[in-house]
């Protein structure tokens, strides 16, 4: 279950941040509540906490991207990749080998959450924080989430009234993020 979705601009400033609010948490089903309670115990100030998590993930993204651009055909750090054959899904156009893969894989993992990153070729970064639950999310699901996010971002960029680089304030984008966070 995704608990935080963040979009970071070219210059590493966040342009969109959405985390599961307290109200959302309270309205969760009972089976989720248990783990949520534990999670909330750790993070008293959720918003700030997520900000911190995402910021620390940025450094890792930078590092990954650097490796990715120097070695073509790089497909993420294998040690952090849950599935070694991750390229299969990403290679939609069959040219993936020549270019850096947008999906950066898992960036950090703690006991209660996992952070995944994705960077477009225009240096826009997407970060999704996934809460660890009893049912682990599959790699494919994460990729799907990012792809949805990326296409929503493309649509947003196509809106003539959106100023590139400004913070995102769009109902349509919100709706996509909501659907991502509610697990499709």
């Amino acid at each position: 279950m995704a608990v935080c979705v963040c979009v970071i601009g070219k210059d590493n400033g966040p342009i969109y941040m959405r985390s599961r609010s307290r109200a959302d948490e309270l309205s969760q089903t009972v089976e989720h509540n248990l783990s949520q309670m534990a999670f909330r115990g750790v993070t008293a100030n959720t918003e700030l906490q997520y900000n911190f998590i995402v910021s620390s993930a940025l450094d890792i993204i930078e590092e990954r991207a650097l490796v990715g651009s120097s070695a073509s055909g790089y497909k993420g750090n294998p040690s952090l990749h849950p599935s070694a054959s991750g390229g299969a899904v990403g290679s939609i156009d069959g040219q993936q080998l020549a270019t850096r893969e947008l999906y950066l894989g898992a960036l950090t993992a703690r006991e209660e959450y996992k952070v995944y990153g994705y960077m477009t070729n225009t240096k826009i970064k997407f970060v999704i924080v996934i809460e660890e639950t009893s049912i682990p999310l599959r790699e494919n699901d994460i990729r799907t989430m990012f792809r949805k996010l990326h296409s929503a971002f493309c649509d947003l960029m196509s809106n003539p009234f959106y100023l590139p680089g400004s913070s995102i304030n769009s109902k349509r984008f919100d709706a996509v993020v909501t659907s991502i966070m509610s697990g499709q």
């Binding site: 649509d155 947003l156 196509s158 809106n159 003539p160 009234f161 959106y162 769009s170 109902k171 349509r172």
Partner: peptide
């Protein structure tokens, strides 16, 4: 209007 969302000012 495929991608357009009107801002409040407009």
């Amino acid at each position: 209007g495929e991608f357009t969302e009107l801002p409040d000012a407009c």
